[in-house]
């Protein structure tokens, strides 16, 4: 666990690291850790069209989940080297708030886990007051049995609870919990198997410059941060390339090695132990 004092000291040191690294030649590959291809998106884009969008954006990998997993399966089938399938506990839109109390979600998960191969469970929405309910408990048990990453849209309390239920869990904290670096940093310090994506966050960078507090966090936890678009509406599929370009722009304000880690190396390292599940 890293203390707040050590976190801030590391942050200050990191801010003094030598100049910005610039991507040269080909665009920097991106591991996009937060893509959804739910039924309403799949109605507008064929799998091949969706894959073409991902490739055109220069994505090296995409962690994909869907409300109704048909979209995820179709994308994975179309581009197995690009698309990392994650199983969402939602069969359709509208289950974000109800799934924790719906026992039939367990049947759905067990069925899909038996029939198909996955690297992760999520993105699911789970908050501290809900983690002790039977359905999320069972979901976490299933993830443990199948050695799957957990992609959690959660508050810090729920993340703590997940690790309490399964201390060896590997958790990707969606949107960095929508909290500031002074909370994210201690959480990453406390949980060695916690990673975080910056999907739908903008506070960390603007006009190609990285905010000082976030710069400190990135340096202190250089192996644990990654990026993501979050295609929570069909329209946002047409934002993936722009998000990748925006990401590359602010990453040039970081040392090259750190930028590459955030862009794709951290995602690759995080997912590597789970890739065996696809074989």
């Amino acid at each position: 666990m890293i203390s707040r004092r050590r976190f801030l000291a590391t942050s200050t040191a990191a801010a003094l690291l030598p100049g910005a690294a610039r991507a040269a030649g080909a665009p920097m590959p991106i591991f996009d850790a937060h893509i959804h291809f739910s039924h309403d998106a799949a109605e507008r884009l064929s799998a091949s069209e969706a894959v073409a969008i991902l490739r055109k954006a220069g994505l090296k990998r995409a962690l994909v989940s869907s409300s109704g997993d048909a979209g995820t399966r179709a994308l994975h089938a179309a581009a197995p080297g690009l698309v990392l399938p994650s199983l969402r506990p939602y069969r359709r839109r509208g289950e974000i708030n109800s799934w924790v109390d719906d026992p039939s979600v367990v049947d759905f998960l067990e069925d899909r886990l038996m029939r198909f191969r996955w690297v992760a469970v999520g993105e699911f929405h789970l908050y501290a007051a809900q983690t002790d309910k039977a359905v999320p408990r069972r979901m976490i048990e299933l993830a443990r049995r199948h050695n799957l990453l957990l992609h959690a849209h959660s508050d810090a309390g729920a993340v703590d609870d997940i690790f309490a239920q399964w201390p060896e869990a590997r958790v990707l904290w969606a949107h960095a919990g929508f909290v500031d670096p002074d909370i994210v940093g201690p959480m990453l310090g406390k949980h060695a198997n916690l990673w975080t994506d910056l999907a739908f966050r903008s506070e960390h960078a603007h006009d190609g410059r990285v905010d000082d507090d976030w710069r400190g966090l990135f340096a202190a936890f250089s192996d644990r941060v990654m990026v993501g678009t979050d295609t929570f509406t069909p329209e946002r599929w047409h934002y993936i390339a722009e998000h990748a370009d925006w990401t590359r722009q602010w990453l040039t304000d970081l040392p090259r090695g750190l930028a590459e880690k955030i862009a794709w190396r951290n995602g690759e390292a995080m997912i590597r132990p789970h890739l065996a599940q696809l074989r």
Partner: peptide, 10 residues
Amino acid sequence: IDEERLHAAG
């Protein structure tokens, strides 16, 4: 309104 079109941030 379809709340899932509205991102749950805060």
